[in-house]
Simulated scan of single mutants.
Amino acid sequence: MRGGRRPGRAVAALAVAVAVLTASACGSSPVQDDPADDPGGTAAPGGQPLALVYRGPAACEGCPEAARELLERDGFAVRYVGPQERLHFGAGALAGVALYVQPGGTNGQEVSTAWGLLRREPGFSPELVRDYVHGGGHYLGLCMGGYLAGDPGYDLLPGDSGQYIRSQGATVTDEQDHLVDVSWRGRPQRMYFQDGPYFDVDGPGVDVLARYSNNRAAAVVASYGTGRVAVSGPHPEAPADWYRDYHLPDESRTDLGLGDDLLHALMSTPPPGS
């Protein structure tokens, strides 16, 4: 299993009752965009930078929405792209987009499965995102999105992603939801984690923002062509209810601050108040 999160225990009975409808994809019945969203999909109001967030069967329930909350906190206008959204993959889908986001994936879903689901979507091709980033765009990969920045996936990293819970010295060794200890810019932090990746990367333009306690890279910003890529194994976008669902100490305020830092490092802008 790679990336994502399960429904909380409070809704476990409901999840069982509707399992036959949702087993193939947590994102199969996404919430519709806000009425104020642009029907054409890519025009951002008020001069805000536009972020495009994937929402579909390769993403977990709630993960695109959590990413959206983080992005809107940082001043982005957000649109969803996916098979049941107003905006689909295809030529021009990323035109005028400042940031493309690949969120967490469905619990129990292998990287190869998520990648296969993406590749079967009408209009999708890896080159759409790869060429967009290479030409100066930005990619943010969270948990499953971090795995998919490697291979199999978009192959945007100067190296690859790997499964942290299987790495030597990992402090989390199962696929359940946990807090994981990381060192973020040299400071100890605890972050929401559910079978996220580490990153084996090296080369010019690589900035490791966070490391797990076994020294594997947990959050990285790297160059790809004239664009930039940011990836995180833990979930810096995790809202308070994710912690509540799994009876974990709530680190959401800290996580969102780390998410802000990751975004600003990716976009090469200083955080507010710095």
Score class of each variant (00 low, 15 high):
A230T: 01
G227Y: 02
V206W: 04
Q189C: 15
G225Y: 06
A240L: 05
G205W: 10
Y212H: 08
G203Y: 08
N214M: 03
V229S: 09
L209G: 00
D255Q: 12
E251K: 02
A230L: 04
D202N: 11
D245N: 05
V221M: 04
H247V: 06
R244F: 14
M191Y: 15
Y212F: 14
P204T: 08
Y243K: 09
V208P: 05
V208Y: 04
D241Q: 11
R244Q: 14
V208N: 02
A217E: 02
G203S: 10
P249T: 01
P197C: 08
P188F: 14
G225F: 01
R190D: 11
A210L: 09
N214K: 01
R244T: 11
Y246E: 14
A222C: 15
D255N: 10
Y224T: 01
D207F: 02
Y212G: 03
P236E: 02
D207P: 00
Q189G: 12
D202S: 15
H247K: 13
T254M: 03
R253L: 13
V201A: 01
V229D: 01
V208L: 04
A219I: 14
V221L: 05
V201C: 05
Y243H: 14
V220K: 06
P188T: 01
D255L: 06
V221K: 00
P236L: 01
Q189N: 15
